[in-house]
Structure formats: structure tokens, C-alpha cells
Simulated assay, not measured.
Amino acid sequence: MSAQDEDGEREFDIKWADGAELKEPSARARMLAARWKENPPKPQPFRADPEPRAPSRSSWRSTAIVFGSVAAIVLLVGYVNFRASH
């Protein structure tokens, strides 16, 4: 059987499957339908707003840690270069 015959057979199968009158839903669709039958989901607007978050109180702490780390690295590199030059 040549590659051309396989492509022709595959094309026929796709056309045959696409032309089916009744298509079976996917497993996920069946699972959700069964779940929603007992417990329907709450309606939500398209791209619903996220839940409001409490303001972060540790932002100053994070900033201090970052600046402190950068300062420590700069001092360490400067000290290593100072020791290497003497």
C-alpha cells in the first residue's frame, strides 16, 4: 500500500467522521454534564472581576530585604576587589 493510498484512506475517514449526524460528547463534557445536573454552576459574567484582596502590609519589608541584599552584595564585591588589589 503506497503513502498516497494511506492519505486517501485517511481523508475518507475524516470526511466520513465529520459527516456524522450525531457526535458523541467528550469525556469531560459528559463528566461536567453529570456534575452540573446535581449541582449547577452559579452564573458568572464574562471575565468576572477577581475577588478583592487585602492590601499587602509587608511591601516595605520586601523592599528593605531587596535593597539590603543588593547593598550587601555590592559591599562584598567591593571588599573582594579591595583585598585582591593589595
Rank of each mutant, 00 (worst) to 15 (best):
K42V: 09
G19H: 08
D7V: 13
A71K: 01
E38C: 06
R53P: 01
E6W: 09
I65G: 01
G78C: 04
A54E: 15
D13H: 10
V74S: 06
P25I: 09
D7N: 14
D7G: 09
D18H: 10
V77Y: 06
V74N: 00
S69M: 07
G68Y: 02
F46N: 04
R10I: 10
R28V: 04
P41A: 11
Q4D: 11
H86W: 13
A27N: 07
F82T: 14
E51I: 08
G68F: 06
V66K: 05
S59L: 14
V77N: 03
A64H: 07
P45L: 08
M1G: 14
A27S: 05
W36A: 05
K15E: 04
K42M: 10
P50T: 02
R10V: 10
P43D: 07
E21R: 13
A34V: 11
E6V: 15
W16L: 06
P52K: 12
F67Q: 04
A72W: 00
E6S: 05
W36M: 13
S85P: 00
A34R: 14
E24I: 15
A29H: 07
A29V: 10
L32H: 14
A27D: 13
W60P: 10
V74E: 00
I14M: 04
R61N: 07
F12P: 00
F46S: 06
D13W: 13
R57S: 13
V70D: 03
A17G: 02
G19I: 07
S2M: 07
D49W: 05
W16I: 02
E24G: 04
D13N: 04
A34E: 03
R57Q: 13
A54Y: 15
S26F: 03
F12W: 10
E6R: 14
M31N: 10
G78V: 01
L76V: 01
N39L: 06
V66A: 12
W36G: 00
E21G: 07
V70I: 14
R28A: 12
G68E: 09
L32D: 03
S2Y: 09
W60S: 03
V66S: 02
K15I: 05
A72Y: 00
L75R: 00
G19S: 11
E38N: 08
K42F: 15
K37A: 12
P55Y: 15
A72K: 01
R28Y: 13
A72F: 01
S62E: 13
D13V: 03
P43Q: 07
E21K: 10
A27K: 02
D49V: 14
A3Y: 11
A20T: 07
R30T: 01
V77P: 01
A17P: 00
Q44T: 14
R28G: 07
I73D: 00
I73A: 12
A84Y: 03
R61G: 04
R61T: 11
R28W: 13
N81G: 03
R47F: 14
Y79E: 02
A84E: 11
R10N: 05
P50C: 02
P40L: 13
F12I: 03
A64C: 15
E21P: 09
